[in-house]
Write a protein that binds this DNA or RNA. Sequence first.
DNA 1: CGTAACCTTGACGCCGATCAAGAGCAGTGG
DNA 2: CCACTGCTCTTGATCGGCGTCAAGGTTACG
Lengths: 241, 241
Amino acid sequence: MHVATLEREAVSCLEMCNQCGARTTSICSVLPHPELRQLADCATVKTYAPGDLLIREGDTFDHVFNITEGMVMLFKLLGDGRRQVLGFLFKGDFLGLTGGVDYQFGVQALTSVQSCRFPRVPFRRLLLETPRLEEELLSRASDELMSAREHLTLLGRKTAVERVSSFLLYIADREAKVGGAPDLAFLPMTRADMGDFLGLTTETVSRVISSLKRQQVIQLLEHGGVRFLRRADLETSAEAA
Amino acid sequence: MHVATLEREAVSCLEMCNQCGARTTSICSVLPHPELRQLADCATVKTYAPGDLLIREGDTFDHVFNITEGMVMLFKLLGDGRRQVLGFLFKGDFLGLTGGVDYQFGVQALTSVQSCRFPRVPFRRLLLETPRLEEELLSRASDELMSAREHLTLLGRKTAVERVSSFLLYIADREAKVGGAPDLAFLPMTRADMGDFLGLTTETVSRVISSLKRQQVIQLLEHGGVRFLRRADLETSAEAA
DNA sequence: CGTAACCTTGACGCCGATCAAGAGCAGTGG
DNA sequence: CCACTGCTCTTGATCGGCGTCAAGGTTACG
């Protein structure tokens, strides 16, 4: 009977993972069965409503996350309230690469979000025993670094129009990878969020979007959707990197 | 005699590594002997003069590097010549984290530079066989990400004075870690390089530095040195993150 | 249907870019 | 040793892109 209980739990773990929205795209996809079980055993599934904070900057760094559904935003605050949005995470993305004792940034849900959370200590133990997982994290860290460098170039050297155009294309590409249409961008964040990502103000973002709409390069849909009517022009105004 | 030759080569490899300026701080410091030998066997030491390019953006990504002496600068170019400086590397830093088939950025020597270069393929093979090395690279990638995020915040949300002050403190801190004095910054790059790192023009960088000098917060030394006369004030104008 | 948050648009202002000129400084060759 | 040359740095005058301030419109939601 004890065995039966274990078996049932094992089955439920697997089922949990098999029903996971990010089963094939999260870091878990590289784990063989016993290691997946090990990870699933210490996992907690949590859901968040739009606006909820997953992490507050300065909180003790005690958990790592898989985003299994929805979209979140990473940000840093300056002492006087200025904010820099560092990036966005989607279904399948991993959160918790950086070391340190505290989280170096806040994380907020932009949509309804589902996450799968692991305590840092057992996760780290599994990591040390599983080179394939370490390899996967390194690969993702490299991708994030590449993306951060694009972002640096945008913030340091692009004009307002180039920034907004690049942003729309970036979001659409990221969303396309998790099942979106290539010429649609869904924008659950506010203009202020976009501004804080792009180093601009709310008003400037709004003006640029209005102008792109007036030129019929994009079309605004309901619920924050944007359709690209002339993607080539959008790419031109985003400027070749 | 064949054996003797091998022994002699082995000794010379070890000596090469023991004389290396970054012996204790480079990624090699985590390698046990046989793996160190393996790496040393495919290493090439190269030196560069100030201004030399180690890597051109778009070159085939075929080598990874340890910087064993001096200072280099990473940068990206836009189509019309605008440039974003992504960061600086010092003695002990590793270059070659990101994947992809091409280098995503250029790398230029700012001082006389010595590097230890490894072909990507055997390096990758060693990496797969040596979890401890993978772990070290992941840790360094995390640090770079953290630093890139600070840089994003600087570019997106700080004023010119805050940017330059942050920059001076950042360079001094990095240099302190490789043996510099804590209240000195050595600046081998031009004002234009600083501007392209900070998202400012040459003239603005120059004006801010002149102003800090006028207020006796810093003092300019010969050969691009800067001494912090009132570090607390500099930290204030860099703004608490 | 009321309320609060978000978005848009206009008028105006300012920080940093641009344009311009001259000073310092290292390297080169007569 | 000095004149020449090219590059970098500094400083001033002016300009303009985006920020700031303000007002009204739109949307989401209880």
